[in-house]
Simulated scan of single mutants.
Amino acid sequence: MRLPAPGIARRVVLDAGHGASNNHGNTSCRCEAEESFTLTAARAVADRLESTGAFALRISRESDRAVEYRERVEEAETWGAEAFVSLHSDVRGQPERHVGGCPVSNLSPGFSVLWSDEGEPALSARRLALARAVAARMEEAGFLPYGGAEYTGLYEPDPVQRGVFVDRHEPTKRIFVLRQPTMPSVLVETHHALDPREVARWDEPSTLDAFAAALGAALLDTLEPEAP
């Protein structure tokens, strides 16, 4: 990871996806709500990034209290965040079976990085640069990019970097945290939550280490240099 000059900490918001009113996210193959996974992951990744000295981190929600997405974006802007990274897990297609009442599928493993091309062109370009950098760094670290078979009509694959997709929902259904922030923002679908192999992998500290290192490198690759 290419570290910035001593004393410069880049301000980044890690959004623990879901956890808004009546928005718990998906249910994993362990019957865990997505909002619980993302909060645990955000805390772990924030600790790892802050330990480098290169970042100042804020997590969009710190407890089970519901926090609306508009509030998260407004707080990021007030704080002066330089990037907004929303962490999620994905559910793709229909479950193949249920085990202990929990949905299971091994058909669509891998990560994806989502972004929006809405709004001002310069900001859109910075979102795309961040999305490509995150996916490239994750792939370098050994994470599998998702191919996108179940995304048809919802997200369009990037022609340059595997695992990157632009939001193509109907305009009223597009993802708020991708199109609204005034700083570069991306959404990382870390894995397929119905796949027991991937869920088990994200329990491992080494996976969180690798992801935090990849994310940190991508942020430093793409954030604009501080003025001297």
Rank of each mutant, 00 (worst) to 15 (best):
M1A: 14
M1S: 14
P4Y: 03
A5V: 06
A9H: 03
V12K: 09
A16D: 01
A20H: 07
E34K: 00
E35H: 10
E35W: 09
A41K: 13
A42I: 04
V45T: 07
D47F: 01
R48D: 06
E50W: 02
S51T: 06
T52S: 09
A54M: 03
I59C: 08
S60M: 12
R61F: 04
R61G: 03
E71M: 08
V73G: 04
A76S: 13
E77Q: 13
A81S: 10
A81D: 08
A83E: 06
A83L: 02
V85G: 01
L87D: 01
V91G: 01
V91F: 08
E96N: 03
C102F: 13
L107R: 15
P109R: 07
W115Q: 05
E118Q: 14
G119R: 00
P121Y: 02
A122S: 06
L123A: 02
A131Q: 11
V134L: 08
A141T: 11
F143K: 14
L144E: 15
L144M: 12
L144R: 14
Y146D: 09
Y146F: 12
G147F: 03
Y151T: 07
T152K: 06
E156H: 03
D158Y: 00
R162D: 15
R168K: 10
T172Q: 15
R174N: 13
I175P: 05
V177C: 02
L178V: 02
L178D: 06
M183N: 07
V186F: 10
V188H: 00
E189W: 07
H192L: 09
H192S: 14
H192E: 13
F211V: 11
A213F: 03
L215H: 13
A217M: 02
A227W: 02
